[in-house]
Design a protein around this nucleic acid. Structure first.
Lengths: 255, 255
DNA sequence: ATACAAATGTTGTATTTACAACATTTGTGA
DNA sequence: TCACAAATGTTGTAAATACAACATTTGTAT
């Protein structure tokens, strides 16, 4: 790469520190090059994850975005798709229970972006914070022992408190999807999930395909108690058979 | 402003949390309104400083932070001294209740660093995270409506749950220290504090001198119910008189 | 100096957005 | 119900951008 090229790109990045957004024409004039050159620079810098492209210009890379090396992490995109697929299933819900885990946080972000005036019962701070951006959503946090690793409330208090509540739909994650039901790695989490399933009229399990046929210590429900499995790839073999026998709807139906 | 208008603008802001930049046409299609409406929404939100406009769309506001973080930057040294002064008062405590606010987070950090095997009842995520670094501390989070501004659990659930608990000592912050007692800016916070005072054998109030003689809507306790005031400068005048008459010990006694 | 590749510029066209003016719909209070 | 204002939609035009194809300049190795 030529020296002049890289120094120009450095200047573009430096400009972005001051100004939130820049326009192609603006940069072209300021750096005395053609708009096409700027466009190529911006595309190159976008490829490197150093900035974000907009129509007509670029903006500084935002801190909350995943780091560059994580951009190729397949499961982030999968979770986003799973989250998007959940929304149509809960349009009429008024009271939701949302469990913990990476996928449920994605679902919470999606809910915050697209739903209004719902009440969400949660035991994960990540979920609560994702929902909090939408002020029309009422968030009821469950009590419990705070687990810093999982960022959740767990234990007897959590379960006991849940038993006085009732919700339309529970949306739960899972560490593994075995033939006899979804399971979690942590016994305490499993106990809370079991209570959540019991207190909701309907239960959705969200999990990407990497969880297929894995078994963890805490099986928190039998498949017959689960109404929907929202995932990114169609399950096969014994797992598919178990889901079908227990009338678990698989979403999305086709890839 | 119409209801549909504000909820649409809320959705725009929420969507912006997930995606760094959005385009007018994209939003118009997604929200099923014309591009002109979106344009007007974006201009209005820009006017309020809630987002940044770009050519063709908008991006999340970049520069500013929630007001909660601002408070953390004021009187940091004072709060550190106050937190250090709290520790000698609670060496024998086994079960603590800790309220919310910037000063109590400092106290929590101090406790995490110097104490072992205590149980802490909390309604603030910040306090929980500060304590979580010490694995010997058991953290019981209270339930409640999650308030994103204060990062706390509030409301009837919180109070009701507290009424089944008991603690050696409560450590509470305050927005103001009036002549008839400590008060908070938020009514809901005050209600929770009142319950905390009632459920603890002893109550400490922690507040820096900027709170002296300020009065806020929710007086959550009378001075006679408070055992210690831990602050960084000796109070004077009417406040000092009120504290002495109600036998509130002032810590540290000297600067 | 020559040849080749990289970088940049130029041109033309299709898309997209911005903006203003005006029409229509919706909401609200008398 | 009527009247009025707010909110939203529609239309036409100007301006800006995106994109592709090709031309030109610059850099570099032999």
């Amino acid at each position: 790469m030529s020296n002049v090229k890289s120094s120009r790109q450095t200047r573009i990045l430096a400009e972005l520190v001051n100004t939130p957004s820049l326009r192609v024409a603006e940069l072209a004039q300021q750096l005395d090059v053609s708009t096409e050159t700027i466009r190529r620079d911006l595309d190159a810098l976008t490829e490197l994850g150093l900035l974000n492209r907009t129509y007509g210009g670029a903006i500084r890379r935002l801190s909350s975005e995943p780091p560059v090396h994580e951009r190729h992490n397949l499961f982030i995109a999968e979770r986003g798709r799973i989250a998007a697929a959940v929304l149509p299933l809960i349009t009429s819900a008024k009271v939701l229970i949302i469990g913990s885990g990476a996928t449920t946080v994605h679902v919470a972000q999606r809910i915050a972006a697209q739903m209004q005036d719902v009440t969400v019962i949660a035991h994960s701070f990540g979920v609560a914070q994702a929902l909090a951006v939408n002020r029309t959503i009422k968030i009821l946090m469950l009590p419990g022992s705070y687990n810093a690793d999982e960022d959740t409330m767990l234990g007897a208090h959590t379960v006991a408190f849940l038993n006085n509540l009732y919700a339309d739909t529970a949306i739960l994650g899972a560490s593994g999807l075995g033939n006899d039901g979804p399971s979690d790695a942590l016994l305490e989490t499993g106990a809370v999930y079991t209570a959540m399933v019991a207190r909701a009229a309907r239960t959705l399990v969200v999990a990407d395909h990497s969880k297929f046929s894995l078994v963890f210590p805490a099986r928190y429900a039998a498949w017959r108690q689960i109404n929907h499995l929202v995932t990114d790839e169609p399950p096969e073999g014994a797992l598919l058979k178990a889901l079908q026998e227990n009338h678990v709807a698989i979403e999305p139906v086709s890839t």
